[in-house]
Design a protein around this nucleic acid. Structure first.
Length: 259
DNA sequence: TACACTTTTCCTGGTT
DNA sequence: CAACCAGGAAAAGTGT
């Protein structure tokens, strides 16, 4: 498991860049340059270590997952099965093909990918300044293409956190489930289709969560208390079995296929 | 600074 | 008895 370095603490006090901002605009701001240099050193998600053309299928999914999380896209609008392709195939897709594959988010994802290919990962940090852009994209796409793949597809909320350090516990758990090589048998799916999973190594889970939060006093007792709070908010649902949890309706990004 | 929200910490009591 | 679950209460941490 990669430890998320709290690099934000040593970064200049600036707003994060718009992922769709041009490179010349970005480099025109020296703070952003410093920010990007620090970020590239501290931020490694696997897929970021490769050029998009070199991505495996898994990297493509990781990237989509990242976009869902970072830009608060509704994953139910993105049929991941249509992205069961490697990076070379992804990069060969036209904007129109993105719209067909990803519906309401296709145009947006296509532009993010193009910026990523041209300028690198530094564009992928925050949607804050692109909220309005995205809202316009979404509405435009909905009107023009009616390609939304889900009946509950919606414009993403505009209030959210952006810091990597503030990754929520449930997202951390989900990402661990989706990353077998980082999971080390800590968690395993019991019923993937219904979002049911089991904590296999409770102490190890507490340890990696503690590492993420830089808290060596974390225990499974405390972590499980945080998980139980999720029952109130629909993030998790109760499963009456020890160490078994189920993702609730207010989660996203864990399904194999979003149709 | 106030506030909202999430997570942590501690706790009592119950269950497996 | 250990490990886990349920959930109250309060505090801490973080972002707006």
């Amino acid at each position: 498991m990669l430890d998320s370095v709290n690099f934000n603490n040593c970064l200049p006090d600036i707003s994060l860049p718009d992922p769709l901002m041009s490179w010349t605009q970005l480099l025109g701001n020296q703070d952003y340059y410093v920010f990007a240099c620090l970020h590239i050193l501290a931020f490694d998600r696997g897929w970021t270590s490769f050029l998009p053309e070199q991505w495996s299928k898994r990297h493509v999914w990781q990237w989509l997952q990242f976009c869902c999380d970072q830009y608060k896209l509704d994953a139910s609008c993105i049929p991941f099965s249509r992205f069961d392709i490697n990076g070379m195939q992804l990069c060969s897709m036209s904007r129109q093909e993105f719209v067909i594959a990803a519906g309401v988010y296709g145009d947006y994802l296509h532009r993010i990918l193009q910026n990523l290919r041209i300028y690198g990962e530094w564009f992928l940090l925050s949607p804050d300044e692109s909220k309005q852009d995205f809202k316009q994209y979404s509405q435009h796409s909905c009107l023009l293409s009616s390609m939304c793949m889900s009946t509950d597809c919606h414009i993403p909320p505009v209030t959210h956190r952006t810091s990597l350090q503030s990754t929520h516990l449930w997202e951390f758990v989900r990402d661990l489930l989706l990353s077998p090589e980082e999971n080390s048998g800590i968690l395993e799916w019991e019923d993937r289709d219904n979002g049911i999973f089991r904590v296999v190594k409770s102490e190890a889970l507490a340890k990696v969560w503690g590492q993420r939060k830089k808290n060596d006093r974390m225990t499974y007792e405390k972590l499980s208390r945080a998980l139980r709070y999720y029952y109130k908010t629909g993030i998790l649902e109760r499963v009456d079995r020890r160490l078994v949890y189920k993702f609730g309706k207010n989660t996203h990004g864990w399904r194999k296929q979003q149709l």
